[in-house]
Design a protein around this nucleic acid. Structure first.
Length: 483
RNA sequence: GUCCCCAUCGUCUAGCUUGGCCUAGGACAUCGCCCUUUCAAGGCGAAAACACGGGUUCAAAUCCCGUUGGGGACACCA
């Protein structure tokens, strides 16, 4: 049997972390099985759905490199199909007219004990005679169509994650399938679409687990074969509450502000799922597709851990070649005016090498701006803490010594040929010895002189990356500053 | 409230199906040490969990029941 899965977001909100993971699980499964991934937009709630939300969701999927084979289908364009099926159910007595107004219903609910939380539709219209239905509808009374839930039936279905689930039909109320304005409810439209689109595996959030009984009943009434259900546990915030603004981001797109998509999907895939053997944390796309296994998804909800996401991000940044990192880092550099068109032309190789040099220190994308500033620009300040630590001394004798050392280093570098990793280090160590100054101290001062900061890549890498000319300029500049 | 689901270090998890190999393994975070020109990275190490109570069994993290805790669903929203 061929695998057909779908991701069916509702554009009444953003694509959040949990939704993104559900999409990813579907996609991973489809790609592994050579199946088809269908994208379907569940926008039957016209009031709350917006085209902007749809665009945002698609953008989020694209960012995560989750591509779809069919769709996006819009339920709002398929309304007639649901109406037809709804009326078919009515004709076959699997559903009935309900004339109870929403007002009446909410009144009854309000009067029920426990604030009506456990109130179910009481079946007032369940046994209306044909004459009564005819006379009421001819009188223009609005009606909804409710599904006739069979009495005393055990509704059960297998779930790939949760095992066999059973619910007594008595716990399922006669739910509305077509509203009085003839629009379908969610339960009708999902089942109709999943059946019609030949979906083999319904992989969705566990918040739908308790709706599934209704869906199973609908499948039975329609005489359709049940798909394999795969309910994926929810992702909660660290306080075990639903993920919300307080925990970071509502939309997956907000993570573009710091994370590479490779890391995001790696983290999401490993959250609540682990490969057999479990010793792999950092996995490539190919590896994920190869090892992914729906039945190994953990049953318990998972808490979203931004720290581990960040670590995953750092690991992916390190292993990403500079040529791939470039396009992701570029917007951040541009924003801080650190981008030069030469990086695309003559200086491209130098630029890529520099990225490779600074990337082990980056945890998030914006880190590249301060990490890269000393190389991509000549304008930087001496960071005050760095000055305090490396360019200051209580004792004027040792300050003088330091200045002398920097001066002779500048002089030596000026004549140094070839100017490379080995020679610059040899010279620096020699100068340090000559001036009886600890190499660590000299290097510290030079680091601040060249980068403005106390933290930077290895000093000789910095020197070579800057080149002789810029190194000398900066040494002159610091001497001026110190005198 | 009713129904459904879940329960291993702070967090993500391995182990649970097919009880003994578990003195419960790995990863993030934390702390310490090493490497070292700073900071990362890397290496080594420490601390840290089977929610609780009953069974079943020669033996239970693993099977069963209950308790507690957590989550979800209970709309003419999706």
């Amino acid at each position: 049997m061929s695998v057909r899965v779908r991701f069916a977001p509702s554009p009444t909100g953003y694509l959040h972390v949990g939704g993104a993971r559900t999409a990813l699980f579907n996609w991973l499964f489809a790609r592994q099985k050579g199946g088809v991934f269908v994208l379907r937009i569940e926008d039957t709630d016209v009031e709350r759905s917006t085209p902007e939300m749809v665009e945002g969701i698609l953008e989020g999927l694209r960012w995560l490199k989750i591509d779809w084979d069919e769709g996006p289908f819009h339920q709002s364009q398929r309304l007639n199909i649901y109406r037809r099926v709804g009326h078919q159910l009515l004709e076959r007595n699997h559903a009935y007219h309900c004339f109870c107004s929403p007002e009446l219903l909410s009144q009854k609910r309000a009067q029920a004990p426990h604030g009506g939380r456990d109130w179910q539709y009481d079946g007032t219209c369940r046994r209306l005679s044909n004459d009564e239905i005819r006379s009421r509808s001819e009188a223009g009374a609005p009606f909804a169509i409710r599904f006739r839930v069979p009495e005393d039936q055990m509704v059960s279905f297998p779930d790939l994650v949760y095992g066999d689930i059973q619910v007594e039909s008595g716990n399922i109320e006669d739910f509305v399938i077509l509203r009085s304005d003839n629009s379908p409810t969610y339960h009708l439209s999902v089942v109709v679409d999943d059946a019609e689109m030949n979906i083999s595996h319904v992989v969705r959030g566990a918040d739908h687990l308790s709706n599934t009984g209704k869906h199973v009943l609908l499948y039975q009434a329609l005489g359709e074969k049940l798909p394999t259900y795969v309910h994926v546990p929810l992702i909660l915030g660290v306080d075990k509450k639903r993920l919300s603004k307080r925990h970071g981001a509502t939309s997956i797109l907000e993570y573009q502000r710091g994370f590479v998509p490779e890391a995001m999907r790696n983290y999401l895939a490993r959250l609540g799922w682990s490969p057999r053997g479990d010793d792999e944390e950092i996995m490539s796309e190919e590896r994920l597709i190869q090892l992914f296994d729906l039945s190994r998804i953990n049953k318990a909800n998972a808490l979203f851990d931004p720290k581990k996401l960040e670590w995953t991000n750092a690991r992916h940044i390190i292993s990403l070649p500079a040529s791939e990192l470039e396009s992701q880092v570029r917007p951040f550099l541009q924003k801080d005016a650190l981008w030069d068109s030469a990086w695309e032309g003559t200086d491209r190789q130098w630029f890529l090498n520099t990225l490779d040099m600074i990337k082990p220190r980056a945890r998030q994308l914006p880190d590249f701006t301060h990490l890269g500033r000393p190389f991509f620009s000549d304008e930087f300040e001496y960071e005050s803490e760095a000055v305090r630590k490396y360019l200051t001394s209580e004792d004027s004798e040792s300050m003088y010594q330091l200045i002398q050392a920097i001066q002779s280093l500048a002089g030596a570098y000026l004549k140094l040929e070839p100017f490379n990793l080995e020679t610059t280090e040899q010279v620096l160590r020699y100068v340090g010895d000559q001036h009886q100054i600890k190499v660590g101290r000299l290097i510290g001062a030079i680091r601040v002189a060249l980068t403005g900061e106390a933290v930077a890549p290895g000093i000789f890498d910095v020197i070579i990356t800057l080149g002789k000319e810029r190194t000398l300029e900066r040494l002159d500049r610091v001497l001026l500053y110190l005198q």
